[in-house]
Design a protein around this nucleic acid. Structure first.
Lengths: 125, 125, 125, 125
DNA sequence: GTGGTCTAGACCACA
DNA sequence: GTGGTCTAGACCACA
């Protein structure tokens, strides 16, 4: 279910966080769903348990996972609701700014950039 | 001319590399054009000179910049010229991919994202 | 009669201990009064029986509960009687201290905190 | 400046977090103030660097500290503003509920509890 | 110099 | 069984 690549430049615990986040956002991991225990996950991917534990803890502090004493972690029931549209757009701002900067430095026209973006957004892969 | 953000998660030297690459690809930095000296650049952005130096060296080993004894670094002559449209769009791709991923995780609609982008591109500030 | 919250950071067995102690101190649980059996309690709160058992054992070793063969545990006879007002206030102290610390860190005024507390104390729900 | 007790039941990294939080809230650590480096702190308290690092990282994710590459951590400039009064009161709620539960079980009168709370809130120690 | 990641492995609290 | 804390110590990226 999870793919951890020890040779990637993105830290292992971060890879796990990203994947859980995406699976939860996408609904493949529904609220209440149990994750593999730290030890299981560690063994399966021949990774140190602390690495898994770190990912789980951070996901817990984000409110995505829930710790249940004596049982494996699970997807939180009450996912803190999504922020307002404005709030979510605000979260996107730094990336948009960087994109605009790059586009200008590359002397790309508005049309070209927007078209490219639309193409990407359309892909459902 | 350059914008370096010490709070970004992208290393400073990398930010500089990206920008020079894009300015060269976009044609704003023509072959032969001189770059600010390491010291100037470091002072202007209150950044460690080693950081600038590292970026310049990597750009040199990529063949984008040229070191000339006693003079500041300059854009290489035998540079592949001003990139084609396709080549420049390709340089934008990683950023677009990251943006699309974020937008999806934030459950933003295509319309919202595109509109926001257009607004930013329109600003001439 | 008992409220056990599995999401609290206070261990469940500790929550139970605290409550029994207070009920005895407050006189709601008089000497000789019987407590629910480990199984009953565990079932009612969907908690592991071992957790209840641990709480009871610790209360027994404190001399607050008494184990009687073949019968449920009961409040000890030779218990220091119903605590004095001062003794009971003393039991509340750690919680009050924690509350005050939090209130200060949240920069809440005395008036606001006291008002909120009064509102809660007034509720008979 | 910091006191870390390895024998306490509260984890070392948590002790450090609590203290930094309080010093920042109290103004003894002003925005921009530098903290001892991970290694310094670790050596001074004969604690493993990772323990300190964990505390710092968590404080960073809370927005209390700021990482500055190549330099020690510092108190964040733009402390995220305080929430609204209502929001802050809401944060106090779980503790208030627990207090009310305890007070009732101890059969303490509203007057006694409130009086005790006021006394504590008045202490400036 | 700064902080971050990771493993090996001990030990603990809780259920 | 579950997850959490901590040390020892290697190795890395960045400034």
């Amino acid at each position: 279910m999870f793919i951890l690549n020890p040779h990637s430049s993105v830290p292992i615990y971060q890879q796990l966080i990203d994947q859980v986040r995406r699976l939860v956002a996408g609904g493949q991991l529904a609220p209440g769903a149990e994750l593999p225990s730290v030890r299981e996950m560690a063994q399966e991917h021949t990774v140190h348990p602390m690495t898994i534990s770190k990912a789980y803890s951070l996901l817990e502090s984000e409110g995505i996972l829930e710790r249940r004493r004596g049982k494996p972690m699970a997807v939180a029931q009450q996912n803190k609701r999504h922020g307002s549209l404005a709030a979510r757009l605000k979260q996107l701002e730094p990336q948009l700014d960087a994109l605009v900067l790059s586009a200008r430095q590359l002397e790309l026209s508005e049309t070209d950039v927007v078209e490219q973006l639309k193409k990407k957004l359309g892909d459902k892969s």
